[in-house]
Structures are given as structure tokens and as C-alpha cells.
Nucleic acid binder design. Structure first.
Length: 629
RNA sequence: GCCGGCGUAGCUCAACGGUAGAGCGGCGCAUUCGUAAUGCGUAGGUUGGGGGUUCAAUUCCCUUCGCCGGCUCCA
């Protein structure tokens, strides 16, 4: 029953990697898709043959060892859950002792000590009532709660040393099979992810089969930190969040602003090509507008309000009401639909202080926002066109892998949603059809839709592997009704318009942050704040350097000349570290031949090139928005 | 907002009860240099803010602001 191909891979990692699991009905249970587990009762052991699941099992087992170590060091602990994650594992604990990072080495040492005892993972099958008695009598309130919810099932537990854990497994046979591990951080976490429940203490760790793999992972983490957009943003002088001035609000420095300007220019072009019209709407409006839209009722805790004369104004948290007012400014005919109103709309939302994160989670941001008003027969093509555009934009920046989510309503609780059930059904099927048309694989998330409509979201991944939503495409069944927006159909009857809300790069702030991490700060030529640095060999070449700079600037390129009184190597290094795509060295030979000696940031010195040729080459790369240097 | 950690010069860090130091960066001078750091000199800090303990606080305690890692929530 072992699949040959991947069994070989596992063997190469660790010759005797086995897992134990429970045969609940007295036979082999396939808890995961691809993992072979023993029938505990006859002691037979089967090999694990899925590498991913083997690693998961290793990590899960390591989390149990950690729990054992913690229970030895802090006997008053009670256990939450301790699953593997994509990168490692964690375990949640409840106890009076406040964990700090200083505890981690102690816990690791205790884990090593226990591992050396070669403890066995001992599975057993429990009746629900036995399990309840057992965990309740051991003061494991949290585990008891989990068991209580599992009505009528046969349950399993695993003993490791003197710790019995309610767990479905599988686990490695014994601690002798555990690999290299490292505890990484402590964090708070809410029990069952509910902020109204008790807060537990979580320890994150990771584990690998070999110490080499662990070291590689830790090295990758370190390298990822060097790509952190907060660090690079400062080093490259792109943006800042001055301390104590306005948390979560971004100051764009000239270089960052230049990158943003180029992104916006690109967006504007691509949108206008596709029939979008750009608008501007005010940043504040009387709260009445926001009462009509429903935001005042449902979004108030995220909104900034301000008194003006005797009235209350709201700093806009969204652009939709503004665009709706433009739509509504006169009667609309079915002939003029679809109307696509776009705006680089700056919105402000109060976010809890603990959620702020560099450029990726802020309190004021500019969305590449648009609202599409259309007829039912136009929806499908509008949705597909929007996905096409999102794909085109993201791929131009070089993003390939991303996570696509379809968020639909919870059909068990339709009372929580605006709009008619048939609207929801139809919208959902349009979104699914469009995703199929694109051939995209996506994750469907039940109950994750906004209350006003289903949506498709696309997330990108930052340097540390965290995902950040950028693209969103949402149906809105709420606002059209609240604002009563309609169009006159061919029979001159008023029909309700269908409204799509969409932002493709999401927000300029978040997108910029991800972009910086994606490129490691080395922007492609079309986005680079400085596209070429002219580097004179000595002072007598300054005139020519200035001439080269100005000639190139004359063709629209962004060029600086480094006239500092420094040696060539110094200036090269300086340009290299600021990640300028091209350095143009000019000395006697170049002055003589009206050339520049081209050095690109990736491949180094490329030799001399006539100035005009260089200008043409770079101009072309910029025009094509090429990703290559 | 919650849990834990951290705030020393523009940046990266040191000193950790006896009153603050380095490298880089900045500025000045010399040097005029061929593809990742020329030399010398110099300025720059009420050690995030406030309060307390102490003869004495950057160091210990409290508080506040901010940041970092998570949780919750989201573009």
C-alpha cells in the first residue's frame, strides 16, 4: 500500500520515518489523504509516503514534545491546541506564568532532555464519556470543551511521557524520530480565535528532518528580513512613518512618490483603454450621506468623524457613496451602461493600533478604486474583464503566484445579508463561471462574503510569507437599494442597476510595500526612481557627466550625476546599494568617443556604448515596462 | 484593542546605578582617482515623553507614546 515514488524521497530524508495512528473501527484509518498509519491493535507499522504529510506529522509531534516540556516546567499549565502550520507548528497554553522569549531556550533544553528518554507516542481510543472524565479530572478545561462538541464520536488520545493529549494524530512512533527543531516566538492568541474568549499564550516553533534543513530555513528567514519593506523603504528613502506623528499614515518621499506616480500613470492608461472614466470626490461629507449608505450604522467604529459648524462630518472610509452620487446626478439610460467610474480614492479608516504594519496595514490609504454600474446582461463580461485586467496588471509587475479566494455567503444564515437570495445565487454563479473562464484555481470560503455581496479576492505574499489581500471584486446588493440607483430600460421602465465594486492593486500603500519586498528594492527600470547614475571618473569629466545626464533627461529618463568628490569605486558602490539599474561611467575614453561605459546592477560592467544607443535601449525597456535590467 | 518584547546620534549598535561611545552617514580640508568603501579633521544625543526610588538613573519601578512578533479585524 506504499506508493513507491514518494517513499523513496522520504527514505532519503530519514531512513526509518514512521507514523502511528488510530484504526478507529479496528481497521486502517486514512485521516489524511496520503498517509499510512498503523493499526495500533496489532502493532503493524506502515510507512508514511507523502513528504508533505510526513513533515506535518514530524512538526505536530514536535509540538506535543514542546507541550510535554512546558508541562514539566510549568505544572499548572492547561493545553489549548497544537497543530502544525505551513512553516512549523505552535501550541497554545493557558497558565499563570507569563511566557517571554527568555523562556524558549529553557523549554528547548527540556525538550532535548525528554527526547533523549526516547519516549513513545502511545495512541488510544476513547469513548466520549471516558475522554470527558479523563480530561475534566485533569483540569483540562479547554480540551474538555473540544470534546464536548464532538458528539457521538469515538475519540483518540496520544500519550507522550506523562502527558495525555486529546488529539487525532498521527504522530511519529517515538521521540527518537524527531528531527531538528527551534522555538521561534511567543504570542498571545484568543481561544478558538474569538477575541471575547480567554487569551492564551502561544509558542511558535518549527521543525525539520535534518539540522541542515532547519539551518536553511533560518537563513531564509534572515534573508527575508533584509527584504522587509520597512527596512528598504528607509534605506532607499522611499517613505516614512515619522514616529509619534500619525501612526499608520504614510509620508511618501520624492523617490517613493516617483514610483507611485509611475504606477498610477500605468493604471490610468490601462483603465482608460478599457472604458473607465476617472473622477474626484470629496474627502469629507456630512454624516447623513453615511447614514444613507449604512456605513454610519455598520462601520462607525472604523470611521473618523469631525464637527463642522453645528454638524458632523465624516472622513471618507470608502469611495462608493461618492461614485454613486455621480451616477445619480442625472437619469441614466440602459444605452449608456456600463458606466465605470474610477478614482485613486484616498480613504481613512481607524484600525486598531496593534494591527498597523508598515505600509501593509495603515489608517489612510489610496485605493485604485472603481465602481461598475451595469445591466444584468453585462455582468458576466464585466467580471471577466475585471479579472483580465487584474491579471494583466499583476503580471506586468511580475507577480505570478497568488492566492485567489471566492467568498460567498453562509446560506444557513441568510438573514445576516442584504439583498435577495436569488441575487446571491446569481452573483455567485457569475463569479464561479468567470473563475472557470479564467481557469483559475481558487479557494471557496463559505460565510466570508461581505454582508452586501459575494466577492473574489486576490492576495499576494510578503517577504516573510504572510499573505496580504490586494485585489477585490465585489457585488453590492446594499448600496443600489439604499440609494435607489436605477436606469431607464428599453421599455422606459426604471430598473435597478447592478453595482460592482473593485480595487485591483488594492491600495497604493499596501501594493508599494509588497512591491518593494517582491523586488527586494531593485525596481525594474520603468519604476526605478533613478534609472541611471552617471559616474565621472574624476573632476575633469564632470562637464561631460552633466551633459550626459541632461541629454538623457531630455528624452524623459530619470538620471542623476554623482559629482561628489569621491573615488570611482565609492560612487559605484553607492549607486549599487541604492539599486539604480544602470551606472554610466565616464572618463577620458568616453569623453573622447561620446560614449558611456555601462554597468548594470546585476551583471556588472558591460563595456562602452554610444550614448544614443544606451538612451534608445533604456527608453525601450521603460516603454515596454520590461522587468529586466 | 489584547498578550509578549523593544525604544541610546540620521542609520546599525555599545555602555546597564557613578552622569554616553563606535562604525557608517553628514559637514570641512587634502586627494583627481577606471567599475562595491582615499585620508585627516569636525559637528551631532535633556539615552521616546512624564513621574517615582536613590546622594546619583540611559541603567531600577510606574505611567504614557511609538515600534516589533502574534491574536482579532481588514485594502
Amino acid at each position: 500500500m506504499t506508493r513507491k515514488g514518494s517513499a523513496v524521497q522520504i527514505r532519503s530524508h530519514l531512513p526509518f520515518f514512521y507514523a502511528v495512528g488510530i484504526g478507529i473501527r479496528g481497521s486502517i484509518q486514512m485521516a489524511g489523504q496520503n498517509i499510512m498509519k498503523t493499526i495500533h491493535r496489532d502493532g503493524t507499522v506502515h510507512e508514511v509516503f507523502d513528504p508533505d504529510e510526513a513533515l506535518e506529522t514530524l512538526r505536530h509531534s514536535t509540538s506535543h514534545l514542546m507541550a510535554l516540556a512546558v508541562s514539566h516546567l510549568f505544572p499548572e499549565v492547561s493545553l489549548g491546541i497544537g497543530p502544525p502550520t505551513g512553516e512549523g507548528f505552535y501550541y497554545d497554553f493557558q497558565m499563570p506564568h507569563r511566557l517571554t522569549e527568555d523562556d524558549l531556550p529553557r523549554i528547548e533544553a527540556k525538550m532535548e532532555e525528554l527526547r533523549a528518554e526516547n519516549l513513545v507516542f502511545e495512541p488510544s481510543i476513547l469513548e466520549r464519556s471516558e475522554a470527558l472524565d479523563f480530561f475534566r479530572s485533569h483540569g483540562e478545561e479547554l480540551k474538555t470543551e473540544l470534546i464536548e462538541e464532538r458528539k457521538g464520536e469515538v475519540l483518540s488520545s496520544y500519550r507522550l511521557g506523562d502527558l495525555v493529549d486529546f488529539c487525532t494524530g498521527p504522530h511519529v512512533l517515538s521521540t527518537a524520530q524527531l528531527g531538528s527543531f527551534r522555538l521561534l516566538s511567543v504570542a498571545g492568541s484568543y481561544w478558538r480565535g474569538d477575541e471575547h474568549r480567554e487569551q492564551l499564550q502561544r509558542i511558535y516553533g518549527t521543525a525539520f528532518f535534518s539540522s541542515r534543513e532547519l539551518d536553511d530555513y533560518l537563513k531564509r528567514l534572515e534573508e527575508a528580513r533584509n527584504r522587509d519593506h520597512r527596512k528598504l523603504g528607509r534605506e532607499l528613502d522611499l517613505y516614512s512613518v515619522p514616529e509619534g506623528v500619525a501612526p499608520g499614515l504614510i509620508f511618501w518621499h520624492p523617490k517613493g512618490a516617483k514610483v507611485r506616480e509611475k504606477i498610477e500613470e500605468f493604471l490610468r492608461e490601462e483603465h482608460e483603454k478599457r472604458g473607465y472614466e476617472f473622477v474626484y470626490t470629496p474627502h469629507i461629507a456630512k454624516s447623513d450621506l453615511w447614514r444613507t449608505s449604512g456605513h454610519y450604522e455598520f462601520f462607525l467604529e472604523n470611521m473618523y468623524t469631525l464637527p463642522v459648524d453645528e454638524e458632523e462630518y465624516v472622513l471618507k472610509p470608502m469611495n462608493c457613496p461618492g461614485h454613486i452620487l455621480i451616477y445619480k446626478s442625472r437619469k441614466r439610460s440602459y444605452r449608456e451602461l456600463p458606466i465605470r467610474l474610477a478614482e485613486f480614492g484616498t480613504v481613512y479608516r481607524y484600525e486598531k493600533s496593534g494591527t498597523l504594519h508598515g505600509m501593509l496595514r495603515v489608517r489612510g490609504f489610496t485605493q485604485d478604486d472603481a465602481h461598475i454600474f451595469c445591466r444584468p446582461d453585462q455582468v458576466f463580461s464585466e467580471v471577466v474583464a475585471t479579472l483580465d485586467l487584474a491579471e494583466y496588471l499583476l503580471s506586468t509587475f511580475g507577480f505570478q503566484g497568488h492566492e485567489i479566494m471566492l467568498a460567498v455567503w453562509d446560506s444557513e444564515h441568510t438573514e445576516h445579508y442584504a439583498g435577495k437570495p436569488e441575487d446571491w445565487e446569481r452573483a455567485e454563479s457569475v463569479l464561479i463561471q468567470a473563475l472557470e473562464e479564467k481557469g483559475w484555481t481558487y479557494r471557496r470560503q463559505e460565510g466570508e462574503a461581505a454582508f452586501y455581496g459575494p466577492k473574489i479576492d486576490i492576495s499576494l505574499i510578503d517577504a516573510l510569507g504572510r499573505t496580504w489581500q490586494v485585489t477585490t471584486l465585489q457585488f453590492d446588493f446594499n448600496l443600489p437599494a439604499r440609494f435607489n440607483i436605477t436606469y431607464a430600460d428599453s421599455d422606459s421602465r426604471e430598473q435597478h442597476v447592478i453595482m460592482l465594486h473593485r480595487a485591483l492593486l488594492g491600495s497604493m500603500e499596501r501594493f508599494m510595500g509588497i512591491l518593494v519586498e517582491h523586488y527586494g528594492g531593485a525596481f525594474p527600470p520603468w519604476l526605478s526612481p533613478v534609472q541611471a547614475a552617471v559616474v565621472p571618473v574624476s573632476e575633469r569629466h564632470h562637464d561631460y557627466a552633466v551633459e550626459v545626464r541632461d541629454r538623457l533627461r531630455g528624452t524623459g529618463l530619470r538620471v542623476e550625476a554623482d559629482l561628489r568628490n569621491e573615488k570611482l569605486g565609492y560612487k559605484i558602490r553607492s549607486a549599487q546599494m541604492s539599486k539604480v539599474p544602470y551606472m554610466l561611467v565616464v572618463g577620458d575614453r568616453e569623453v573622447q568617443g561620446r560614449t558611456v561605459s555601462v554597468r548594470d546592477r546585476r551583471r556588472g560592467n558591460q563595456g562602452a556604448c554610444p550614448l544614443d544607443d544606451f538612451s534608445r535601449m533604456l527608453g525601450q525597456k521603460v516603454a515596454q515596462r520590461s522587468l529586466d535590467v
